[in-house]
Computed example of a mutant assay.
Amino acid sequence: MEILASRVLFRPKDYQRSIAFYRDGIGLAIAREYSGGTVFYAGQSLIEIAGHGAPGRDAPPFPGALWLQVRDLHATQNELRERGIDIAREALREPWGLFEMHVVDPDGVMLIFVQVPEDHPLRRDLRD
């Protein structure tokens, strides 16, 4: 099997509220719009908010979280606050070495904003 592309797809309870959250609150750029949906750029991935199909209230809760890497976590936290986004958990350094901050979308999906410090193994070239 060859995977050619992937994206996260949400079917929210309130389509317009979710579009406003991801576009205006989080500040994601729109990759494309179609009748009944909007696809956002999210780094090397895509997030699609679908206004069609089974609404989110009929679907099981999202079992995971979105991991969104940023260059400067404290600047991101300040920017989100200025846009009126509630910070569920303030930026802090985790025991595993990453700086993380949590935000929750209108349907309860956890967004984990991450900054990888210069000294973290994710920044090192482990090839010989």
Rank of each mutant, 00 (worst) to 15 (best):
W67Y: 15
I85V: 13
L73A: 00
R23H: 09
L122W: 13
L73W: 00
V116S: 09
R71K: 15
L111C: 01
T76N: 02
A88R: 11
F62T: 15
R81A: 06
V114R: 01
F21T: 13
A65E: 14
E100R: 15
H52F: 11
G64H: 09
D105F: 02
D58L: 11
H52I: 15
A29E: 14
L68T: 01
R127E: 12
Y34D: 03
H120C: 06
I30R: 12
V70W: 01
F40T: 05
P95M: 03
D125S: 13
H102N: 06
F113T: 09
A20H: 08
R17P: 01
I47A: 01
I85N: 02
I30S: 05
P55Q: 11
A54F: 08
E82T: 12
M1A: 11
V103E: 05
I112E: 07
E2P: 10
R17E: 07
Q44A: 11
G53S: 00
Q115K: 07
A5C: 00
M110I: 12
Y34W: 06
G53P: 10
L28M: 12
I30V: 15
A29H: 01
R83C: 03
P121V: 12
G36L: 05
E82Q: 15
L4F: 03
W96F: 14
A91N: 02
G27E: 00
G64T: 04
F40P: 05
Y15H: 09
Y41H: 14
H74S: 02
Q44W: 06
E82L: 15
G108A: 07
D107S: 08
P106R: 14
A31Q: 11
G36H: 10
G51L: 04
D119Y: 10
R81L: 11
L68S: 02
T76Q: 12
Q16F: 00
G51Q: 02
F99T: 06
L68W: 07
V103M: 02
Q16S: 12
D105I: 08
D128Y: 05
P63H: 05
I19C: 02
Q77S: 07
E79A: 15
R93V: 13
R17H: 00
A20T: 12
P121E: 13
R81M: 15
Q77V: 13
E82P: 00
Q69K: 13
R11M: 07
R124Q: 14
G56I: 10
D72C: 12
K13C: 10
A29K: 12
A31C: 09
E33L: 09
R57M: 09
S35R: 15
A91R: 01
G56C: 02
G51A: 10
A59C: 09
V70L: 05
I30D: 02
I112Y: 00
G25F: 08
P63V: 12
S35G: 02
K13T: 14
D128R: 14
A42C: 10
P60F: 03
V104Y: 09
G108K: 14
T38V: 15
A29R: 14
I49T: 00
I85A: 00
E100C: 13
I87S: 03
D72L: 07
V8M: 07
G43Y: 10
D86M: 04
L92Y: 02
D86N: 09
P55L: 07
D72R: 11
L9W: 03
P55T: 09
Y15N: 02
I19R: 00
I85P: 01
H120F: 05
D119W: 05
R89A: 10
A31V: 04
I112N: 07
M101N: 04
M101C: 14
